[in-house]
Design a protein around this nucleic acid. Structure first.
Lengths: 166, 166
DNA sequence: AGTGAAAGTACAGCTGA
DNA sequence: TCAGCTGTACTTTCACT
């Protein structure tokens, strides 16, 4: 199911639902310029084909007491596939770790971690991350302040790109 | 509006809507154990008080052709507040930059960038980021593969924490 | 278009300070 | 007693065939 299967209306639907995932179907249909029933069919198709993975409320973590956001750069001793997968599995089991990406270059992984306070993070750092098997080095950077945090995909870039090649 | 104002039902609502933001109100009410009208009122209150910032469809960026994800570490020449804000404003205007956080330590900012392909990212890097005023150094790391990418807040951690202090 | 269900509103009852 | 929250009843709007 490549991107070629998406027409401009499908892309508009995706952009609108990315901006407001609780929009009613009639409102969505009005915005994309078709009537409600075909609009709903398109949304279902986009869900089933995996273009839409789900819908999530954007919860204000700071208001809930998560004051600490940290990026951790992790280097491993062994980069064998088994060991990489083992570390990834560990990360998936740690709730404080919200994101884990394998990188090229000097470090092996970057982790984005959220915690209620510094002491919670530090007990995770020293108790879990630094003592995990195969972890060679961890460099942490505290987020002083957030300047931008956009969920999802820049549809503007996509449309520009499609306009050029058409 | 501190966290103390949230009772266990409110927290359950937040957790459920974070997991599935398009759940109907009656389904939500059933899950949290109250009837629909008060449940809806609670949701509205959570929205108005800023605990819920919005709802977003989780769009599969890779299926849409965004194959490249890059973390960029940016160092500035001047860290005066005016200059920091100026750089943040630039980032807010760049659609490829999805996240921008100010860090402590050696680098000043970490940027998370999404692009359709490497050449698009490189033209952004050389044409926009590296040539921006006050940018001293940029180190980029390409994401080889993603191992975890959870939106939102780990409610498990929150509940553990509240259970201890009660 | 039409049916069945959900969202949203008004009002009355319950519970705790 | 009074404030706040809950549940029942009802209307309007939406989802779905």
């Amino acid at each position: 199911m490549p991107i070629a299967k998406l027409d401009p209306i499908d892309r508009k639907i995706l952009a609108e639902l990315q901006a407001d995932g609780r929009m009613t179907n009639v409102e969505l249909a009005k915005r994309v310029g078709i009537s409600a029933p075909p609009c709903l069919r398109r949304v279902r198709t986009l869900e089933e084909s995996g273009f839409i993975r789900g819908y999530h409320a954007d919860v204000n973590s700071r208001a809930l007491g998560f004051e600490v956001l940290v990026f951790a750069m992790v280097g491993l001793q062994s980069q064998a596939e088994v060991d990489l997968s083992a570390f990834e599995a560990l990360c998936q089991g740690w709730p404080l770790v919200r994101e884990c990406h394998m990188l090229n270059g000097e470090v092996d992984f970057i982790l984005k971690c959220a915690a209620p306070d510094l002491s919670t993070f530090q007990s995770f750092l020293t108790g879990d991350l630094l003592t995990a098997r195969n972890v060679a080095s961890v460099k942490t950077s505290l987020v002083i302040r957030g300047a931008k945090d956009e969920p999802g995909v820049p549809f503007e870039v996509l449309e520009q790109r499609l306009a050029q090649t058409s």
